[in-house]
């Protein structure tokens, strides 16, 4: 289980995270939504150990993630933008990660094959299209059989066919007990995948609960309308 308590982060005068306390239910798919600059990325980066918060704690399976890399062995991360050295080939990039994660004895290569990545193995990263890079990132996120998956705008650069395969994989892994945390601006996608929603605004968690609970609370037929409802209400409060 992932437990975040009293997390705070400032960027100079900007309060990016303001006393964020959440518990991610084990085996659930939780989506973080909110407008740009609401603190979603800072929260994700804090969980990944990329941002060092000023206050608060993040525990995964009862252990603090600060100064501890062990949780990364059980975490799969799909970034919004790829991060492979441009002159390496696809095979070399995958091999690099296999070497770094040598603790993982078995590899899940389902997405790697379904996305047709073996045919690109000899190509250098700089010669791949944005979509193929996203497919590679997605395949790697699942490759080491993580217990915890973090997906940042997972389908942003994927074609509908690949997006469908990825969503199917997320659901399948979730059925196998993998905890998923994702961000997306595509509300139908969130509605399709997520069990719970965290709505963030100005660094604070304004809502955390089931997708249906959010829709009921705002008397909305879709998540998109419910989220738009909260945003409208919050912006009115801000401008009032």
């Amino acid at each position: 289980m992932i437990k975040i308590a009293g997390l705070a982060k400032n960027y100079k005068k900007l309060r990016a995270l303001d006393d964020v306390s959440i518990e991610l239910r084990e085996g659930a798919v939780t989506a973080i939504v909110g407008p740009n600059g609401s603190g979603k990325t800072t929260l994700l980066k804090s969980i990944l150990g990329l941002v060092i918060p000023e206050n608060g704690s993040i525990d995964i399976n009862g252990k603090s993630i600060f100064n501890n890399n062990d949780f990364k062995k059980i975490t799969g991360y799909l970034p919004q933008y790829h991060g492979f050295p441009s002159n390496l080939t696809v095979k070399e990039s995958v091999d690099l990660l296999k070497h770094l994660r040598s603790d993982a004895k078995e590899h899940d290569l389902e997405l790697y094959y379904r996305f047709g990545l073996p045919e690109h193995e000899r190509k250098q990263i700089k010669h791949l299209s944005g979509g193929t890079l996203q497919k590679l990132s997605a395949a790697i996120a699942f490759m080491f059989k993580p217990q915890f998956l973090i997906l940042d705008e997972p389908t942003a650069s994927l074609d509908p066919w690949a997006a469908d395969i990825l969503k199917e994989k997320v659901r399948e892994e979730n059925r196998n007990g993998v905890t998923v945390l994702l961000t997306s601006h595509i509300m139908p996608e969130v509605e399709e995948l997520a069990d719970e929603v965290i709505f963030m605004l100005e660094g604070k968690v304004r809502f955390h609960g089931g997708v249906d609970a959010l829709k009921t609370e705002h008397d909305s037929p879709t998540l998109e309308k419910a989220v738009a409802g909260i945003m409208g209400r919050e912006f009115k409060l801000c401008t009032a």
Binding site: L50, G83, D103
Partner: peptide, 16 residues
């Protein structure tokens, strides 16, 4: 500067 994406990604792996 051009490796920032790579650095970010690598730090999400079990790397010090």
């Amino acid at each position: 500067y051009n490796s920032k994406g790579y650095i970010l990604f690598m730090l999400t792996q079990p790397v010090k």
